[in-house]
């Protein structure tokens, strides 16, 4: 049995190349050279945790382990999950003031409004959406809303379902919101059960067309600060998968530094007073 400390494990250039190609094939996430320190550190941590002693043994185990448990743990450690409540609030304002009125006007069948928040991270985004709808959208009294939130990281999904947050996560919430929807406990701020009961958390890899195939008919998608981690091909594939998950006329919000126009011609750019949003065209449009 070995007890090599993470700091004593070295990852060679060749190891790094081999690993990043494998990880890319599995997740669509590409680590460039600037992420080298981050990747090395997390690989060393997993090598230590699994007591495999060195990269070679660890990599063999990773590739051939039938259960895939270690790959999932590695994915969990390699994904970045920092977020907070009401992040990029102008997009939430855009949702209630501009996007939802347009959706409800065209929704003649009065079917539930379906919202997909991906990646869920530890749940701040989907809970923020729910709170925003309750606080700022009168339509919540007249329409059914389904919120589904997904992530590739199962640890994050566990945290999201639990709904327990640090002060840092809730720091931008107005006091009355914090008081209304959270309980201050010894462990942190616990989101109320009413909200925990309405958000469905699921595991999905947005880059994988087989996994996303069952996600359909969403009116609104939030996919913020995820595509920046993908390379061109994975971004293209993810955009296609998101497109197929949306209803015609549905809207997708990306992070402020992301642009769908640079990824795919499938979506229309919609410039609202609060934010730029991308829309799946209502009708199929011929090119010529």
């Amino acid at each position: 049995m070995n007890n090599t400390a993470a700091k004593d494990i070295s990852i060679s250039n060749e190891d790094f190349q081999k690993f990043r190609e494998y990880f890319y094939r599995k997740t669509g996430i590409w680590f460039d050279e600037s992420k080298r320190y981050f990747v090395d550190k997390r690989l060393a941590e997993r090598i230590t945790a699994t007591r495999t002693d060195n990269f070679r043994s660890y990599f063999t185990m990773l590739r051939f382990q039938a259960s895939g448990d270690e790959l999932q743990k590695l994915i969990n450690s390699m994904t970045v999950n920092e977020t907070y409540f009401f992040r990029e609030e102008y997009q939430l304002q855009c949702m209630v003031n501009s996007v939802l009125p347009e959706i409800t006007e065209k929704k003649l069948d009065r079917s539930p409004i379906r919202i997909w928040s991906v990646p869920s991270s530890s749940g701040e985004e989907p809970y923020s959406i729910a709170i925003y709808l309750l606080e700022h959208w009168e339509g919540i009294n007249y329409w059914d809303v389904e919120i589904i939130s997904s992530d590739i990281d199962t640890n994050m999904l566990h945290c999201a379902r639990k709904g327990l947050y640090s002060h840092r996560s809730v720091q931008y919430l107005p006091a009355h919101i914090l008081h209304k929807y959270f309980r201050n406990t010894d462990e942190g701020y616990q989101i109320c059960d009413e909200l925990r009961d309405v958000i469905e958390f699921t595991r999905v890899n947005v880059f994988d067309p087989l996994e996303t195939k069952r996600y359909r008919n969403f009116d609104i998608v939030f996919c913020r600060n995820l595509l920046i981690y993908f390379d061109d091909m994975s971004r293209r594939q993810a955009a296609e998968n998101l497109y197929d998950a949306m209803k015609p006329g549905g809207f997708i919000f990306l992070g402020h530094s992301e642009s769908m126009s640079r990824i795919s011609p499938l979506f229309k750019v919609r410039k609202f007073s609060e934010a730029v949003v991308y829309q799946k065209p209502l009708y199929t449009e011929a090119r010529r």
């Binding site: 539930p112 729910a130 919540i140 009294n141 059914d144 809303v145 389904e146 919120i147 589904i148 009961d197 309405v198 958000i199 469905e200 699921t202 069952r214 996600y215 359909r216």
Partner: peptide
């Protein structure tokens, strides 16, 4: 309002 999550809810 919100549709509560159900074990058999279909995505």
């Amino acid at each position: 309002g919100f549709v509560k999550k159900q074990k058999d809810r279909r995505i």
